[in-house]
Design a protein around this nucleic acid. Structure first.
Lengths: 249, 249
DNA sequence: CTTGTAATTGTCAGCTTGATAATTACGAAA
DNA sequence: TTTCGTAATTATCAAGCTGACAATTACAAG
């Protein structure tokens, strides 16, 4: 290849202004299970538009970050969790780019699904710069509109995040990411019940899930009443055939 | 809410320059099946970088377009297909935003999966502005690197597009989007074999798929040898349990 | 030692699967 | 028009899986 020709080609590529430019943000759908209920982290907006309404946490993607980098950084900033140590599951959900989704300017948002491992107690969430407040909210209450709907198109993003998680839990052990590294079958079943919003038969759940788990040999100290439960670790590998999600009544 | 206060809040939101800006493109993974082989549309780059290498078709997202709008427009521009009439399946795949994925500047790409309905003959593809050439290439040959790898991170995008399609065909009838509106079970089986790159037992395939299809009552005129086949239409609804994909030898 | 509760294992009829064979329906050659 | 080859479709069957539910085991607390 000719050097000067290559240089000429290179220089005539994209002139500034040839292309439309957008602001890129990373929004987070952060799930955790507490009290047998699936919860999502939301911030109350401190400025217009949608001032006072609940929204997903998020922020701009920096010039030398990927969207996934930004998602990790935002998560650390808003929860104060040490992500280098905690096993936190983050995966990209989808990108939302309707031209008028933010009335101020062109903002394209890459939504991410985040699963926080908790032992029943939710970590504090601190809103970002323009957030007045932040906290945990029950997903199914938010989605059924018992409370007011979310800012921007965040209700849709939350719904698609829930669908992604619920669907993936049919054929993977990703639900275990909402639990500590070692957990009992009852804890895992509780996660399924929280995400699917439906009860599961304990016996059949154990039978289907056990081959996907690695027995640590350890047992919990029995709670008030009941036998001690075995502690498991999740393994990789797809569940086939998948665990059937109870059909809507 | 106080009008002047609201206005003040509004005006002090995002000043230009407060946020990093990026160029947004929509890239297409366009699949079609021909001769029992899964094919992908690729263009040969006419300019640097990666001049002369194969790449996915794509282009910039316009100021008043969503990424999905742009995907539709690009597809129409590069195939000349009348998308208003043809049933073409388009869905978002994922967004690629590594800071240096394009050596020239910050380009974030929203990849889309496109399924073209064909009757065995592939439509012409005409590259975009900076494409020297365009055509159809066998997916599995491209991915196994028998040919040189694709420009940018497009090999990865292609792989993830294939995985998305292959996975979704386990539990939906989306594969029928690669066929005309009415098709035979053998045609549909051929699509599965092309995408999964594995043979399927005809009898069991029929048994499993039939409940997901609507019989048109029509039959094909028998080809040279063999009985005429019934023509079906796809229906919605998930296949449960899913069709098992043959495990890698 | 008894009781209550949770964990875990067992049972069973009915359904699904993979493998493979049998049957049916044509077009084309003899 | 009979025979032959091939593809479509249906059938068979043992093995595995499922949902529903019962039985057993293991603790803690009274």
């Amino acid at each position: 290849m000719n050097g000067s020709e290559a240089e000429k080609d290179y220089l005539q590529s994209y002139q500034p202004g040839d292309y439309p430019s957008v602001a890129l943000t990373a929004d987070l759908v952060v799930f955790a299970v507490s009290g047998g209920v699936l919860q999502v982290a939301l911030v109350r907006r401190g400025s217009h538009p949608f001032k006072g309404q609940l929204a997903l946490p998020g922020g701009f993607v920096g010039p030398m970050e990927s969207a996934d980098d930004a998602a990790h950084r935002e998560l650390a900033e808003e929860t104060g969790l040490d992500l280098g140590h905690l096993p936190v599951h983050i995966e990209q959900l989808a990108t939302y780019s309707a031209p008028l989704r933010d009335p101020r300017m062109r903002v394209v948002s890459v939504a991410h699904l985040v699963l926080l491992a908790t032992d029943g107690t939710l970590p504090d969430v601190t809103g970002g710069s323009d957030a007045a407040d932040a906290g945990w909210y029950p997903v199914y209450e938010i989605l059924t509109g018992k409370r007011t709907s979310l800012a921007f198109d965040h209700s849709l993003i939350l719904l698609e995040g829930l669908n992604r998680l619920a669907g993936k839990m049919e054929y993977t052990t990703v639900g275990s990411q909402l639990l500590p590294g070692e957990f009992t079958l009852t804890q895992l079943r509780t996660v399924y019940e929280a995400v699917w919003n439906a009860p599961m038969a304990p016996g059949n759940f154990t039978r289907k899930m056990t081959p996907q788990l690695e027995d640590t040999g350890k047992k919990t100290r029995a709670a008030a009443g009941g036998a001690p439960a075995a502690l498991f670790r999740a393994t990789e590998g797809h569940i086939h055939p998948p665990l059937a999600r109870p059909r809507g009544q």
